[in-house]
Amino acid sequence: MKRRSLLSVASAATVMTLGGVGYAAHRRGRNPYYRGPASDHFDGVRFFRPSQETDKDLLAVARWQLSRGGEAWPKQWPSPFPADVPPERVEGLRVVLIGHASYLFQVAGRNILVDPVFSTRASPLGFAGPKRVNPPGIALADLPPIDAVLITHNHYDHLDGPSMARLWQEHEPRIVAPLGNDAILRAYDGTMRVETCDWGGSVDLGGGITVHCVPANHWSARGVNDRRMALWCAFVLTSPSGVHYHVGDTGFGDGSLFREIRARFGPPRLATLPIGAYEPRWFMKAQHMNPADAVAAFGLLGADRALGHHWGTFRLTDEGIERPAEALAAALEEAAIPPDRFLAMRPGQVWEAGAAS
């Protein structure tokens, strides 16, 4: 295959990872993932958030891809932290970044994975698309017993079907995902049991831990014709270790998302927030925060600590590999926030806290 064709395939895989190319498809038709009554965020075929900017059209996608430049990434960018071998159980709160947006949360004696991606590429294609530049911060074989897996949405850098099938076969965890994602997950293993939730819904994970499904300014797609046909979300974990707010992907919007979390749950003890995949800003702003947005969200939440993810593993957008961490440091300095209150996490890095007082 010629170089130009390979680049076209890789670009297509990147766009699909970020949200598909079915921008005008299925405005009328059948949803292959979910059937349910219309609501204030579901029109009977597609999900939406009324206050969120509408989809980019194909011309906008073409404009980005044809003019795409940005900083090159290295082929390898090893983490300064060794791969973690977690303890079997933790009574307080222990958080490890596996890479990109994949975490292991160990809380109150339970082990919870969120958006686990262990594959080499975050792509629908095995030979093209975003390729990881560092290995997972925990090897699959070194995972402790997994009690639950949380999926925020179906983009390939968050929902990795082969990894989910293997986790199911080896651990049989409880799996919690937004509406419609159960059908996608079961395509990788028909025996997989998935509990779905709508915005505002909650699932009791036992041990005093409840996971709450809350809105995010984002979207979903797995292919060319299924844009916004499965729901996306953020999660709030309430546990004996306090309130933990986790966002896989979101735009800042008008900030109401974060004010509403604080009003409903109180200031979180910990917020895990995305800080990468934000350039070019004209294309990404509605659905991806940049580090300054993340610091503003941290302030609105009133969170005690924050951890930044969604950077430094898969090249999805145009900013250089180290720019998110640099921009986060600058935004924290501008806001007079001590840098140890909001860390740009690297794979294998561990953050720990005791039980809430």
Rank of each mutant, 00 (worst) to 15 (best):
G206E: 01
G109H: 07
I146T: 07
A271H: 00
M1Y: 09
Q287R: 13
G253Q: 05
G253L: 10
R3K: 11
S51T: 11
G201S: 11
S220G: 09
G201E: 11
P124D: 06
P215E: 09
P291Q: 10
L307H: 07
M289S: 07
W311A: 08
S102T: 11
S163E: 06
G308Y: 04
A331C: 10
A72E: 15
A325W: 09
L343K: 03
G206C: 07
K285G: 03
G99W: 04
P145C: 11
L7W: 12
V90P: 01
D318H: 08
P145S: 14
Q65V: 15
L332C: 04
L205H: 03
G248T: 03
C213S: 15
T250N: 03
R110C: 00
E322G: 07
L6N: 03
Q287W: 12
D55S: 13
Y278N: 05
S239M: 00
G36A: 11
G36P: 06
F258A: 11
R259I: 04
H218P: 01
R262K: 15
A101F: 08
L328V: 03
S102P: 01
P280N: 07
F342K: 01
G266W: 07
A297E: 10
L97K: 02
A303Q: 07
S357R: 13
A216G: 08
G266Y: 10
P32I: 05
L185W: 12
C197I: 00
A234E: 06
W351H: 14
D293N: 14
S11G: 09
L18P: 06
S163G: 08
L270R: 10
A325F: 12
S220H: 06
W73C: 03
M16R: 06
R27M: 15
K131Q: 14
L159G: 01
V176G: 05
H244C: 11
E334R: 14
A165R: 15
A148S: 13
P135Q: 13
F342Y: 02
I321K: 02
A303C: 09
S220Q: 11
G208Q: 00
P78R: 10
G180P: 10
P347F: 04
P268D: 10
V214R: 01
R193Q: 15
D249W: 05
S220E: 11
L179N: 04
T152N: 07
A187I: 00
Y103W: 14
D226I: 03
A216L: 08
N31F: 01
R89K: 10
R4H: 13
R228L: 04
D198M: 02
W311V: 07
T250D: 05
T14Y: 01
Q52W: 04
G201A: 11
R315V: 06
Y33L: 03
F81K: 03
L231D: 13
G44V: 12
I209W: 00
G251H: 04
N111D: 02
P74R: 01
V350T: 14
F235T: 03
P130T: 07
L237D: 02
G200F: 09
F47T: 04
D182W: 12
E71F: 08
A187L: 02
R132T: 14
V107Q: 00
T250H: 08
R228N: 15
L343N: 02
I209Q: 00
V247L: 11
S241V: 04
W351L: 05
P82K: 07
P162Y: 02
F283D: 01
A325T: 08
V15T: 04
G223M: 10
P291W: 08
G251W: 05
L270W: 07
P135V: 12
V224P: 14
I146M: 08
A344I: 03
A303V: 05
